[in-house]
């Protein structure tokens, strides 16, 4: 199947109406400019961070947004020609094209310093457990379910640790295996 599509691309140039998992495409600014079905717009991404986590929209003023693979959204501090076949472009910030968008650990650490919503504060032991990748009961949380920013007090300020999935009184750590550590 991919052979067929490559053949079509060769004959007709790049098919701009399809999502091609092998390259980066800049997100359209708004729905009016959307060509590829299902692709989130820049406006939707900025609004999602603001509505879900209270991240100020201007946080993203210096970044362009790109999709590579199905729903993997990247934020890049510069701009480049689109589409682009490079191996990496900025920082992977979230997984879209699914009912509940999922922010990445690295995005939350880098861009959620000013998040005001859906932020769960962990004490020392809870934070250690979270970074080890463990799930834990957290009955005190009475906010939304779903993906939360997990944070702690660190060096006199709030520091985001990563992303937790909160369901049925339990906070599940989504810290990737390669980032998990025993810090206790």
């Amino acid at each position: 199947m991919s052979d067929d599509r490559n053949g079509a691309n060769e004959a007709n140039g790049t098919d701009e109406r399809e999502n091609d998992g092998q390259r980066f495409d800049r997100l359209p600014a708004t729905a009016d400019e959307r060509v590829v079905a299902g692709r989130p717009t820049r406006e939707e991404v900025v609004e999602w961070w603001a509505e879900r986590y209270g991240v100020p929209p201007e946080t993203w003023d210096g970044h362009t947004f790109w999709e590579k693979g199905k729903g993997k959204i990247w934020a890049f501090a510069g701009d480049l020609v689109s589409p682009n076949p490079v191996e990496g472009l900025g920082l992977r910030i979230l997984r879209a094209r699914q009912e509940h968008w999922k922010p990445s650990t690295n995005a939350v650490q880098r861009f959620c310093g000013e998040a005001t919503k859906n932020v769960v504060f962990l004490d020392g032991e809870e934070a250690d457990r979270f970074v080890r990748g463990e799930d834990q009961e957290l009955e005190r949380w009475d906010g939304d379910w779903g993906y939360l920013v997990a944070a702690h007090e660190f060096e006199g300020a709030r520091e985001s640790i990563g992303v937790g999935l909160y369901l049925h009184g339990e906070l599940r750590s989504t810290v990737p295996k390669g980032r998990q550590e025993d810090l206790s």
Binding site: A77, V81, P85, E87, L91, Q109
Partner: peptide, 29 residues
């Protein structure tokens, strides 16, 4: 390279996989 860059919060990095001796700027337009 990507893992280290993301852990450090680097967002201005473009990663490419070419032979540097005849590096092409074609992907950059």
């Amino acid at each position: 390279l990507r893992h280290n860059a993301e852990r450090l919060g680097v967002s201005n990095l473009v990663v490419t996989n070419q032979d540097a001796r005849n590096y092409s700027l074609k992907p950059f337009g």
